[in-house]
Design a protein around this nucleic acid. Sequence first.
RNA 1: GCCCGCAUGGUGGAAUCGGUAGACACAACAGACUUAAAAUCUGUCGAUCGUAAGGUCGUGCCAGUUCGAGUCUGGCUGCGGGCACCA
Length: 847
Amino acid sequence: MTITERYNFRQTEPKWQAEWEKRECFLAKDSSDKPKYYVLEMFPYPSGRIHMGHIRNYTLGDVIARFKLAQGYNVLHPMGWDAFGLPAENAAIQNNLHPGKWTYENIASMRKQLKPVGFAYDWSREFASCDVNYYRHEQKLFLDFFANDLVYEKESLVNWDPVENTVLANEQVVDGKGWRSGAPVERRRLSQWFLKITDFAQDLLDSLDTLKGWPERVVTMQQNWIGRSEGAYVHFPVVGRSESLEIFTTRPDTLFGASFCAISPNHPIAEELAKTNPSIASFIKECNSLGTSLEDIEKAEKRGVDTGLKVQHPLDANWQLPIYIANFVLMDYGTGAIFGCPAHDERDHEFATKYKLPIKQVIQPEGEVIDVSSQAFTGDGLLVNSDFLNGLSVEQAKQAMNKVLEEKGCGRKAITYRLRDWGVSRQRYWGCPIPIIRCADCGVVPVPEEDLPVVLPEDVTFDKPGNPLDHHPTWKHVNCPKCDGKAERVTDTLDTFFESSWYFLRFCSPHSDKPFEKEAVQYWMPVDQYIGGIEHAVMHLLYSRFFTRALRKCGYLNFDEPFKQLMTQGMVCHETYKDSKGQWISPDEIKKVDCAFVKSSDNSPVVVGRSEKMSKSKKNVIDSDEMMQSYGADATRLFMMSDSPPDRDLEWTDMGIQGVWKYLNRIWKFVVEAEHYCNKSAQGSGDKDQAILKLLHKTVSSGTVDLEKFHFNKYVARMREFHNEFEKHYKNLSAPVLKTSLQTFVQLLNPIIPHITEELWHEMGMKDLLVHEPWPKADSAYLKDDTIEMVVQVNGKLRGSLEVALDEDPEVIKKIALALPNVQRIMEDKQVRKIIVVPNKIVNIVI
RNA sequence: GCCCGCAUGGUGGAAUCGGUAGACACAACAGACUUAAAAUCUGUCGAUCGUAAGGUCGUGCCAGUUCGAGUCUGGCUGCGGGCACCA
């Protein structure tokens, strides 16, 4: 076998990677005559191994980067590490390793895995967010936010493990218990730092309309997350007390249908009552054992306890309502108190039925009989049993009620948002220290800028629970920058979403001694194409949108939206397997015998399960290194791109990667052979030349559109279609047509399989690198057809087809269609009622 | 519980604006080459009736709009993502 017969990726791939690096093909220049293009994939958490989900994410970005490079853009395509986070601390506890050591070792091994895939990254811009040179700037940004009134401190609820005396992440609460101690968690108040994202709620909502390049579902999810609602605050005087209970409602129109008020278990009144009332205290304790996760709270059975307290109806002094403490009322939303109208709200209805509270109908839909005792009616209608609101529509009633509430001084119209301010305090070591000092005399004192960075101490221990920064013997003890008296650092670190909210700005000028250079950000931002998982649809993307607004307020930049276009990719899945004992087993522990899988070790039968997201727990992870070794980067890349569209899940299969590998060899063999054929001075026929040129230009034209829309799987299919046709006829082409067609074909494949195409380009005797070649352009002269095929239907059913000139007269088409034998046969002697002609597409005869 | 998606042959998917359902592949089957296997090449490949021409059914389920629905509307079912301290 000669070298040209089989493609040797083990030699080729490293060779061209070295060449690209040597010639600095992918270094982004901070100024250029070319238009700029910033393509970014969500930077990875350095968990230790590159998995297939990473490879898919980065291949998507890489194909775009290479395509845009060829199209003549100045491309920025960077890579870095989202390196702070909980897993590093867990590893530290388990293996007695420093989180920093663990993290940097992981980064090194992941970088080593990533390089052989041949991504067109500008590696000179790489950084890890746990580098002091990254987080020192983050501290500066925090201080600027502080100075610009975007930071404040307030008490909020956390999950507390009473045995370990530690704050737990939601993930660390399993069935209401601490994951290590097994102790039931408690909700506990803790003073925490918050960013005022709600200052921008309306703007974050309004600007979503401008994000035309975002998937609609992500926009909808953000809209719902921000959750603007118009309603009213209403004061209910508490009977026998001087205070009143303030509630928020979106349905002031139903105020005359009120039958109870409910407050959160964490409402001040509830907590006060708990001090003297043991049954209330135990109910609150039970509610608190649910932890802080909204999901758990809302899934739990709706329960309440009567406080014994009564409120007066704001519009009728003789009407009293009970106050309940209810487990579904959240302290974080509105005022932590609601009024219940069971007839017109499902949750209130459920609650009222359970505690035998009155259900009073106040809305009557027109021309419909309803029974609110059995089911809440939430639709539109006219107000009844409601004093001055009677006869009004829901919308009119809302306005009328708001007006009266305001006049009587017992309420006011208000707009609220579901969005809450962003709590950024974490009681953990492996994060960016919050640069604040507490002084007994001066209070809260920000760390002076010249004292930055506040560096994480290296000498920490993880032998006891809680925050090592808090335990550290010396770190937190400092002198107050104002009065020089004894003071303490805040030992909380920032939420890791903080790092990922501005890293895309840092990539524009990663070596700057400021957070970023204004000019560089001005030039590169916004990110033209951002790519990552749908799981980040709300939080990360919303925080980043908030950050640019906050930075704008601080004078750092002058735009609001960081990501012009967004692509959300699906997961990488694999079949799952279980052995005869029902234990998960991995794909490399099994083998195929007579169409069924058995365990390699003992030939026992294996149960094949459905395809699921690759995860360690289900043992269906395919190692990227193994694929690199067996099939190489191009094959892995091609498989990633050719099967599923980017936003859907991709199922990794052994057969699939093998098929792609075979195809790479077919490309190799074909191009090499055809190239030889060029030199045999082939004599082509004009007909075949024209036909292949037509197909070639059509392929270039529609292929370019596919790439622009990120329809990579269709793009690959189109290339194969062209290849199939080309391979059939290449021996009948003239040498010049064969040559250009081959070159264009190789070039079109380049963004997806860059190594083999670079090698073929070289084999074809081209002097420069293929990555330097401009993207091919389609000649419109080849794109038009003179005649087209039209389909003929009778009553919407396919009955035949006809070939006519482009834009043929509809009357002519009708005649030809009616004359078709199959149409004649179906019609028999029936009358034509109507004929619909859709130009150049279809004829439908209605009989 | 709430919010957001998705569902097309044995499998992954294609169908640009409501206009030929199944492009391009994978698997399978048959054949060629081979001592044999692999590789490669050729052919078949939604179901069903029919010798064929051709017909009927078919895009998770039930309705609806339309000359025409995978695509639009309403109602379900199943699966997935998110729910604020996993990243």
